[in-house]
Nucleic acid binder design. Structure first.
Lengths: 211, 211
DNA sequence: CGTATGATGTGTACAGTGTCCACAATGGCA
DNA sequence: TGCCATTGTGGACACTGTACACATCATACG
């Protein structure tokens, strides 16, 4: 039992097939977006029969949903990467930097991992489940929560009038999300890196000014 | 030969099979989004063999692209519906109304025809082809052109500084497009009509103020 | 007028997909 | 030890996109 090739499963039971399937699905999504998350190919990569997946997911759509949630967690991770780089300053400057970090991290992820970005938003969602733990990154926060945190700091720093705070997430998120979509699939596709950076900064400026 | 049932094709040649396929594809897209534009089902509806489609489209993706362009034309139509309802006023008010009409028409279409809206943006595009005639509506203008026209009026009316005019389309479009996506598939799904209307107005306000 | 020819549609075939069903192996619990 | 729920397998089916060879027609040209 101890000298089996590491690629082969020594036990009949897989151990954590569900996790392995999600991981394989993420690889497929990374390379080809949501449509590439093909059930049979996913199981093939894990070295298991196609039907094995049905012990862990109701159908292909359920597998895709799990992959999508994982991808949203990666979005959160990428945003947090930007957040930790923010220097210590006064509250107002920090709040603005935070909002900027959320936007730039979001767009950076869209450009670096277009397949995962598309996958993250390919499955219908709603407000009630936007903060489900399955969508959180390593830091335990979802992208939606990160946007909310930035806006809370803006409010606390006096940069956002209290009467405009409710649902301000909608505005900030819409703008940045739209830019991300248009950049990877839409008419803004093919823009050079600097142009996208510039557009990102302008969108964030607009949000800050327009909130 | 003269008493054939009207549902049957009397001639071997179809007449305009390409157009018929696009129309059938639009019906499928309306009901089920881009994934529902299935080549075999499309040809079945037109009453033709699956391979007939290959005389007019290189593959399924090419058919989907044609359907997507058509859907973009419908977006333009919906926007123009809002535009014609604008009353005559002074230039500044008209410019603002125009920008607002573009935004509300865009979001209205997303809500009224989510399947077509998703289909319209499911095929990779780029700036060079954003104004292709195949994407124009009955008025001969593409959605992108309509956004540009609104911004041109804003500029002419002195509501948009000249140095900010270049690429302002990116900002306006990103915000509204993002809202549309989030409303039909994203976390904002399931919001009530009035809430969406309100969010739409706020997003447009933000764009106007932030441009 | 008749016929060659290019354009358009058909039939058959194949690999790949999601999913259903019946069955098999396993490991933990009585 | 023996039972049995859990987890995985194998085979089957309907469906998909698409390649290849063939049939049919519309017309341009002799």
């Amino acid at each position: 039992m101890s000298a089996l090739p590491s690629t082969a499963r020594s036990t009949y039971r897989h151990g954590d097939l569900r996790e392995a399937l999600v991981a394989a699905g993420v690889d497929l999504a990374r390379a080809g977006g949501p449509d590439a998350v093909v059930l049979r190919e996913t199981t093939r990569r894990v070295g298991v029969s196609p039907n094995a997946a049905y012990r862990h997911f109701a159908d292909r759509q359920a597998l895709l949903k799990a992959v999508s949630d994982r991808a949203l967690g990666f979005v959160a991770d990428r945003i947090e990467d930007e957040v930790v780089a923010i220097p210590m300053t006064d509250a107002a400057t920090h709040a603005r930097s935070l909002l900027r970090a959320v936007g730039t991290g979001y767009i950076a992820f869209a450009r670096e991992e277009p397949g995962l970005f598309r996958t993250a938003f390919s499955v219908p969602d709603n407000l009630a489940s936007a903060d489900a733990p399955s969508k959180a990154g390593a830091g335990g926060r979802t992208p939606y929560q990160l946007v909310g945190m930035a806006l809370d700091e803006m409010l606390a720093a006096g940069l956002l009038p209290a009467e405009r705070r409710p649902n301000a997430e909608f505005l900030a998120w819409s703008s940045v999300h739209g830019l991300g979509m248009l950049v990877i699939d839409g008419p803004l596709r093919g823009l050079t890196g600097p142009m996208i950076d510039h557009a990102t900064q302008r969108v964030i400026d607009m949000v800050e000014r327009g909130l």
